[in-house]
């Protein structure tokens, strides 16, 4: 008998309305999404279709208006503000379009931030940050400032920061849109290799069709709804092998 699929994310009928009355904007109109552990899911669709709103709700940084939403087995909206903040700090990794690396601190300190926010000692946090930088291949840049790095390097730092505290769910907002084609490929390779290792799930919002082939599934959104879910390649290992020269 086949083992039931374990879901990292399960939403149904999620709506989000910004504003009230005549000024109300319906960003989500009943979105349905399921993301199993170990999957890299890409959310695609035209601008304003609700992709960013949906991942904000999934990451627990925005409240939904209606619907059901479970992430890693809990409903983020049901938690108190303090508990939600702690839950985010321990379980969610973020990769932003504009990196959001603090320019006045070193690369290693930037990567250590999620651990420092959890109250971990500075020395231990920096050691873990250096290990994370090693994984993304830029450990030699640990003492540099983010502004001294290229866009691709900065995004790799951001990935190291997103993964340093071993989150079980990673959300990425347009991680390749600020990068050239080569760097975009490199960043997605890293995300595909590292982010979904183990008991982890990854949702990537992107417009960049050049990186679609990294997805396990592509979820197309339009007008606040999920309109199409397409499983691309069931087995990542198979895909990686098929892509090997």
């Amino acid at each position: 008998m086949a083992e039931p699929v374990r879901l990292a994310v399960a939403t149904d009928g999620v709506t989000k309305v910004f504003g009230r009355g005549g000024n109300a904007v319906h960003a989500l109109r009943g979105a349905f999404l399921e993301v199993p552990y170990g999957e890299l899911v890409m959310l695609v669709g035209p601008s304003g279709c609700g992709k960013t709103t949906l991942i904000s709700i999934l990451a627990g940084i925005l409240d939904r208006t209606e619907g059901r939403c479970e992430v890693l087995g809990v409903d983020p909206q049901a938690m108190s503000q303090g508990a939600l903040t702690r839950w985010r700090g321990q379980n969610i990794g973020f990769v932003f379009q504009q990196f959001n690396l603090i320019p006045t601190i070193t690369v290693a300190e930037n990567v250590a931030v999620p651990l420092l926010l959890q109250g971990q000692a500075r020395r231990r946090a920096l050691a873990a940050a250096e290990a994370a930088l090693e994984r993304v291949g830029i450990a030699d840049k640990r003492h540099s400032r983010p502004t001294q790095l290229s866009g691709g390097q900065q995004q790799r730092v951001a990935i190291a920061r997103a993964l340093v505290h071993e989150p079980r769910f990673v959300v990425c907002d347009e991680p390749t849109s600020a990068l050239d084609a080569d760097n975009g490929q490199l960043v997605m390779e890293l995300l595909a290799e590292i982010a979904v290792q183990g008991d982890r799930a990854l949702v990537v919002v992107t417009h960049d069709s050049r990186v679609f082939h990294f997805a396990d599934r592509i979820v197309r959104m339009d007008d606040g709804r999920v309109v199409d879910t397409r499983t691309q390649i069931a087995d990542r290992t198979a895909r990686q092998h098929s892509e090997s020269p």
């Binding site: 985010r88 959001n100 926010l117």
Partner: peptide
């Protein structure tokens, strides 16, 4: 000028108090 970084810190688990 640092609001986006404070926002990122907040998203990554930084409490209001912190």
């Amino acid at each position: 000028d640092n609001l986006r970084y404070f926002g990122a810190l907040k998203a990554m688990g930084g409490s209001n108090w912190l």
